[in-house]
């Protein structure tokens, strides 16, 4: 990859309140532009926190971070990471985070709020170019026939596609997805991840997603990062994710039960 790395983190430490334990304690992490990365690890391992740091929702207490070549000072987020820069990073949510009473088109169009002039938008007036971008994104996720429908009339899989269309309309260069398919059935989960992988490649965007199933991570990412207790315990190409690696990420202690053993096997075989 040519351009600056999408993400560079160094000595990053995050916790929710002073005196609390570190939720995230990373030595170093670089994610190249255009890479597709899956974060896996047990609940509470820091996957979501890492994604929220990359989105600017959670600020690290210590450490250096650069997003898309821009150095960000966590002590002065507003100055070093203004809104118009932050919107180069888009977020796809586990629970879709859509305005359910609004239509598909409105939800996707609102992905452009940071790119339009504020006052006309508040009156409901959007430039033609922005409406065009929203519609194009809707076509890309194959929701042409649902564009005018209210989101609460759609299925879960369709709703997550609206969420994906929204970050496409936002023209985000880094796509963060927090458990994007954990609310979907297995077939829809595969379809949705395939769509995310395809679209991020088509747009040259970097994809960083947290996933519950190592098998899905191996299938839809180029690189799999395993987190445990806020630290990186595995980092490698998705082909290298074998049973031993999964065991190391999820069950480092030797007291693994029989049920745990077969679960690990299943996770890898998927």
């Amino acid at each position: 990859m040519s351009a600056a790395p999408a993400v560079v983190l160094d000595g990053l430490q995050v916790r929710y309140g002073p005196e609390r334990p570190w939720v995230l304690d990373l030595d170093h992490l670089t994610i190249r532009a255009g890479e597709r990365v899956a974060l896996i690890g047990p609940s509470g391992s820091g996957k979501t926190t890492l994604l929220r740091v990359l989105n600017g929702y959670v600020l690290p207490e210590h450490g250096h971070m650069a997003i898309l070549g821009r150095v960000i000072d966590p002590k002065r987020p507003r100055e070093t990471w203004p809104q118009e820069e932050r919107l180069r990073v888009g977020f796809v949510f586990q629970d879709f985070a859509l305005v359910e009473r609004a239509t598909v088109f409105q939800n996707v169009l609102w992905g452009r709020l940071g790119r339009v002039r504020a006052l006309p938008s508040l009156l409901g007036i959007f430039p033609r170019a922005d409406k065009f971008a929203a519609m194009r994104a809707i076509l890309e996720v194959d929701l042409r026939d649902q564009a005018a429908q209210r989101v609460d009339t759609l299925s879960g899989g369709q709703q997550q596609r609206v969420g994906i269309a929204r970050v496409l309309a936002q023209e985000a260069e880094v796509l963060l997805a927090d458990e994007p398919v954990s609310n979907l059935d297995p077939v829809l989960a595969e379809e949705t991840l395939a769509l995310l992988a395809t679209l991020s490649r088509a747009h040259g965007a970097t994809l960083v997603m947290s996933l519950h199933q190592p098998a899905l991570a191996a299938r839809y990412a180029d690189r799999v990062i395993g987190l445990r207790s806020g630290a990186i315990v595995h980092d490698g190409p998705s082909g290298a994710l074998d049973e031993a690696a999964v065991r190391r990420i999820y069950r480092p202690d030797s007291s693994a039960t029989k049920a745990g053993e077969s679960a690990v096997k299943e996770m890898v075989d998927g």
């Binding site: 118009e84 919107l87 949510f93 009473r101 992905g111």
Partner: peptide, 24 residues
């Protein structure tokens, strides 16, 4: 959720209220 989503799309405070809260 929708408020965070609009915030991450770069929406201002007024835009978040207008598009994230009022329709809800």
């Amino acid at each position: 959720g929708p408020l965070e989503a609009l915030d991450s799309a770069g929406a201002s405070w007024w835009q978040r209220i207008r598009f994230g809260i009022l329709p809800q």
